[in-house]
């Protein structure tokens, strides 16, 4: 059983994340539909690429808001650690890809790899920290 924190701030954080992810999915499908079926071209294509990207920015703002609102120092510390792990993974991966591209012109990452890697490492770091902080059964 994971030692999952259940503070007021984390409940608000979960709600905001679910809303943002829903909006993100709607925007992604909407933008893709517009490009494929309404044959959007020119500067509107850039708008279609920017709008769903803003939802990703909102996801990080949700994390920032949570860090501001969380009163439990220990839980906040865990979140900061997870962000650090996610950022390290993203920068490490994109640096390897950039250096390979610099040396050979090849090695570009598929689209959205960075996004997926950040949130996967972030989630993994959260789970690992929660597992490490489990209380013993008799406690």
């Amino acid at each position: 059983m994971l030692c999952e924190p259940n503070t007021k701030a984390i409940k608000v954080y979960r709600q905001r994340t679910v809303v943002t992810m829903t909006v993100y999915l709607v925007l992604v499908f909407g933008a893709t539909w517009a490009v494929r079926h309404a044959h959007v071209k020119g500067w509107l294509l850039y708008v279609c690429a920017v709008v769903p990207s803003l939802a990703i920015l909102r996801l990080l703002q949700v994390v920032g808001l949570y860090l501001k609102e969380e009163t439990d120092e220990f839980v906040r510390r865990q979140m900061v650690n997870s962000i650090l792990w996610g950022t390290a993974a993203v920068l490490g991966l994109s640096a390897v890809s950039d250096f390979l591209r610099g040396y050979t012109g090849k090695g570009e990452l598929p689209g959205f790899t960075i996004f997926l890697v950040f949130w996967m490492v972030f989630a993994l770091a959260q789970v690992v920290q929660q597992l490490r902080n489990r209380v013993a059964a008799d406690e």
């Binding site: 933008a31 279609c48 920017v50 803003l54 990703i56 920015l57 920068l91 959205f112 960075i114 996004f115």
Partner: peptide
């Protein structure tokens, strides 16, 4: 970083 990579991905 995420914004730029997402924009590029889209």
């Amino acid at each position: 970083v995420m914004l730029m990579m997402a924009f590029h991905g889209f």
